[in-house]
């Protein structure tokens, strides 16, 4: 039988999870607030051969599964490293290789999980999986969770929210791409410049909503 305190704890945890996920989707969106993964996003929306779900499904899953691994790495591995490393080798220099390993392990898990999809979707998602893993949005989220000292719940929620936020950004920019193809736009602004200005305006809206710059 659940007690009131247990109910409150579960409720608080769910609320905290949702709040961190929503925070990552909108207020701290990886693209609009921190410009992470924007190069790949611009290439993705202009690529007719790769559909949004083919790339974003692996991104969301890798973000979700790499977040707990990143938290474990930050909590258990990173404190032990100074004991074994020589003085001339700072721990900070090993951060990319540590968190990249977390992302690659998550990629392996996701590769197995994608096996439950129908064959056509499975092959399409697995083709994009390595590129989705080695991207700024995944590694940047892991590094950010580490810098912010998020716990397991917060890290997982932020990872899931970052993946969903990336999907949100791709959908918004993809919708804008259709309108940015208008002939009314001057020739020199077509392509990359119009994308950047469009994303900049959306980023400005997020900045106005938050009211301050986000942590880096």
């Amino acid at each position: 039988m659940l007690t009131v305190s247990t109910d409150l704890t579960v409720f608080q945890s769910v609320a905290q999870f949702l709040s961190y996920a929503v925070l990552a989707v909108f207020a701290e969106n990886v693209v609009f607030s921190r410009a992470m993964g924007v190069s790949r996003l611009i290439k993705l929306v202009g690529d007719p051969e790769v559909r949004t779900w083919q790339y974003c499904t692996p991104v969301i899953l890798v973000q979700l599964f790499s977040a707990p691994l990143g938290w474990a790495c930050m909590t258990y591995v990173a404190p032990l490293l100074p004991l074994y490393l020589p003085d001339w080798l700072p721990v900070a220099s090993l951060r990319p290789i540590l968190y990249l390993t977390c992302a690659v392990l998550a990629m392996a898990v996701v590769w197995v999980l994608l096996g439950i999809l129908p064959a056509a979707h499975r092959v399409a998602c697995r083709e994009q999986l390595p590129l989705a893993t080695c991207t700024c949005s995944v590694l940047g989220t892991l590094l950010l969770c580490s810098n912010q000292n998020y716990d397991l719940l917060q890290s997982t929620a932020f990872g899931l929210g970052s993946g969903l936020g990336y999907l949100f950004a791709v959908l918004v920019v993809d919708e804008g791409r259709r309108r940015l193809g208008s002939k009314d736009i001057p020739t020199i602004f077509r392509g990359l410049p119009s994308y950047l200005i469009y994303i900049g305006i959306l980023s400005l809206a997020i900045y106005g909503l938050v009211g301050h710059g986000v942590a880096r």
Partner: peptide
Amino acid sequence: PLAAQPAGGFLLLGLVAAGWTAVAG
């Protein structure tokens, strides 16, 4: 002052890229 923020960075980079593309084109 907005140029120091990511939003200003996007806008400014877009304008610079437009000028760059115009000259290169």
